[in-house]
Amino acid sequence: MDRFVDAFLNPAVIEKYLPDILWGMVVTVEVAAAVVVTGVLGGLVLAAIRSFRVRPLNALIVLFVDVFRALPPLVIILIAYFGLPNVGISLSGFTVLWLVLSLVLAAFSEEIFWSGILSIRKGQWEAARSTGLSFVQTLAWVILPQAVRMTVPPLTNRTIAITKNTALGAVIGVPEILMQAQTAQSFSGNATPLLIGSLAYILLFIPVVAVGRWLETRFAWGRA
């Protein structure tokens, strides 16, 4: 037991490296927040475009979504990180991480939004169009508001899963929690930073789940 505490809960190590872990938390939150905003918005835009039913455009969207759902994010990250500089595009690790995770989240959320749009009964389209609203007005004011509210549970689950992938940033040197923890571990020769890092993730996770649950209850109204 003593050995456990010394190895994983060493007070001296905690004191020395806690600032680094905290800094890693800031970076993690920055990446995660940016990914959520661009990923969810991107998915919404793609799903809205898909509702216009322009065949060649839809084929491209489906292709994009399939590829980014089938590939492990780490694979895409490594391709971007090692390949882009060699073709003249110089991006920081942070940017690569944000870009790849956004594209992955956009792909998943497009599917979720599209299912939501499909599940809106045809009658809603007909009622709105028959009062003279255009396609775009119907989409914006009647269809999407309903579709979006229905998608909150699967969307929050998927968003949480993707933001945990921020840990992959450690592989390409982004100074988020895991990387700080690993660095601290090798400098201190002690595993405490790893445990603290794990606790940091849990700390971040709790408010996200709470927000998700709040969103679900806020948008609970009777279905059409």
């Binding site: 009658g123 809603q124 007909e126 169009r129 028959s130 003279g132 004011w141 009647v142 508001p145 109204w221």
Partner: peptide, 29 residues
């Protein structure tokens, strides 16, 4: 769209917008 505003349609399943108040349903168009 302009023509449809001159033709009122009432459906068997009402098709009111559930995410808006009754007044908003009426005033949207």
């Amino acid at each position: 769209n302009a023509m449809r505003r001159r033709i009122g349609m009432v459906f068997q399943s009402f098709n009111l917008y559930p995410h808006m108040t009754v007044l908003s349903n009426v005033t949207l168009a």
